[in-house]
Lab assay of single mutants.
Amino acid sequence: TTTLTYTDEEEARKAAEELKRRGITFTYTKRGGTWEIRIK
């Protein structure tokens, strides 16, 4: 499992869109002031 952490929502959203485009499965979690993208 790879976890990407972002403090900028815009960056996190761009990363999530890129992963979706590649067909990669991930979970997206907001934790306080950070956003976590966990790639399975």
Rank of each mutant, 00 (worst) to 15 (best):
R22K: 11
E18N: 09
I24A: 04
E9V: 05
A12I: 02
T27M: 05
E36M: 06
T7K: 07
K30L: 05
T27F: 07
A12Q: 01
K40Y: 15
G33V: 06
G33C: 11
T29W: 06
R13N: 09
E11Y: 04
I37P: 00
I39T: 03
T34I: 15
I37G: 00
T5C: 10
G33I: 07
R22E: 06
T5P: 02
E10A: 13
G23W: 02
T3Q: 04
A12Y: 12
T2Y: 12
T2W: 12
K30C: 13
R38G: 05
A16C: 12
T2D: 08
E17D: 11
T2A: 10
K30S: 08
R22Y: 06
E9N: 03
A16I: 15
G23M: 03
K30N: 10
K30R: 08
E9Y: 08
E36A: 02
I37T: 00
T2C: 15
T1E: 12
Y6L: 02
T1I: 14
T34S: 11
T29S: 09
Y6Q: 00
E36Q: 05
R22A: 11
E17W: 10
T7D: 09
E10C: 14
R21C: 10
T29L: 11
L4N: 03
G32R: 04
T3D: 03
W35Y: 09
R13K: 14
I39G: 01
Y6C: 03
G33K: 10
A16S: 05
A12T: 01
D8V: 11
A16Y: 06
T1N: 10
E17F: 11
K30Y: 13
R31A: 10
R21W: 04
Y28T: 08
R21L: 09
E9T: 02
R22I: 06
T7G: 07
T25W: 12
E36F: 12
K40F: 15
D8K: 07
A16F: 08
E9R: 06
T3F: 10
F26N: 01
R22N: 07
A15Q: 07
Y6F: 15
T7E: 09
R31Y: 11
K40V: 15
K20R: 13
E17V: 10
D8A: 05
E11N: 06
L19A: 01
E10W: 13
D8M: 05
T7V: 08
T34K: 14
W35P: 01
